[in-house]
Amino acid sequence: MFSWLANMVSTCLRPIRRYARMNRDDTDDSSSSEDALLWCKDLEKHSCGEFSFAVVQANEVIEDQSQVVTGPDAVFIGIYDGHGGPEASRFVCDHLFQHLMGIAQANGTISEDMLRDAVSATEDGFLNLVRRTFGIKPLMAATGSCCLVGVIWKGTLYVANLGDSRAVIGSLNGSNKIVAEQLTREHNASREEVRQELRTLHPEDSQIVVMKHGTWRVKGIIQVSRSIGDAYLKRPEFSLDSSFPRFHLPDPIRQPALSAEPSIFSRVIQPNDKFLIFASDGLWEHMTNQEAAEIVHNNPRIGIARRLVMTALNEAARKREMRFKDMQKVGKGIRRFFHDDISVVVIFIDHELHGKKIAVPELSIRGFADKVGPSNFKIVME
Rank of each mutant, 00 (worst) to 15 (best):
F2E: 09
L5R: 05
N7F: 08
V9H: 10
V9M: 08
R14M: 07
R17M: 09
R17N: 12
R18N: 07
Y19D: 11
R21A: 11
M22N: 08
D28C: 13
D29M: 10
D29K: 11
S30L: 15
S30M: 14
S31V: 14
E34Y: 15
L38I: 09
W39R: 03
W39I: 05
W39S: 14
D42T: 08
S47D: 10
F53R: 06
A54S: 14
V55I: 13
V56D: 07
A58S: 15
V61H: 03
Q67A: 10
V68A: 06
D73H: 15
A74W: 09
V75R: 04
I77A: 05
I79R: 00
G82N: 03
G82T: 04
H83R: 01
R90F: 05
R90W: 01
F97Q: 03
M101L: 07
M101G: 01
G102D: 07
G108A: 11
E112T: 15
M114Q: 15
L115F: 07
S120D: 09
S120P: 00
S120W: 08
T122A: 04
T122L: 06
G125T: 06
V130M: 05
V130W: 05
R131F: 11
F134M: 04
P138C: 04
C146S: 14
C147D: 03
V151W: 04
K154A: 15
G155F: 13
T156F: 12
L157G: 11
G163D: 00
A167Y: 08
V168L: 08
G170S: 06
V179F: 03
V179K: 13
T184F: 06
E192R: 08
E197I: 00
R199V: 02
L201S: 03
H202Q: 03
P203Q: 03
E204D: 12
S206Y: 01
V209Q: 00
W216L: 01
V218K: 01
I221Q: 02
V224F: 00
S225N: 02
I228D: 06
D230I: 01
A231H: 09
L233H: 03
L233E: 03
R235N: 14
L240R: 03
L240E: 07
D241C: 04
S243Q: 03
F244S: 03
F244M: 04
P245W: 02
L249D: 09
L258H: 00
E261S: 12
E261I: 14
P262H: 10
F265N: 03
S266Y: 11
I269K: 10
I277Q: 06
A279L: 03
D281R: 01
D281V: 05
G282E: 05
W284K: 04
W284C: 07
T288I: 08
T288G: 13
E291P: 12
I295P: 13
P300C: 06
A305S: 11
L308N: 10
A312K: 11
L313C: 15
R323A: 11
K325H: 11
M327G: 14
G331W: 02
R336C: 13
R336M: 13
F338R: 04
D340Q: 05
D341F: 07
F348Q: 08
D350V: 10
H351N: 10
G355R: 08
G355C: 11
I358H: 06
P361K: 02
E362Y: 04
L363S: 06
S364E: 08
I365V: 11
F368D: 01
F368C: 01
A369L: 13
K371P: 00
V372G: 00
P374L: 04
I379A: 06
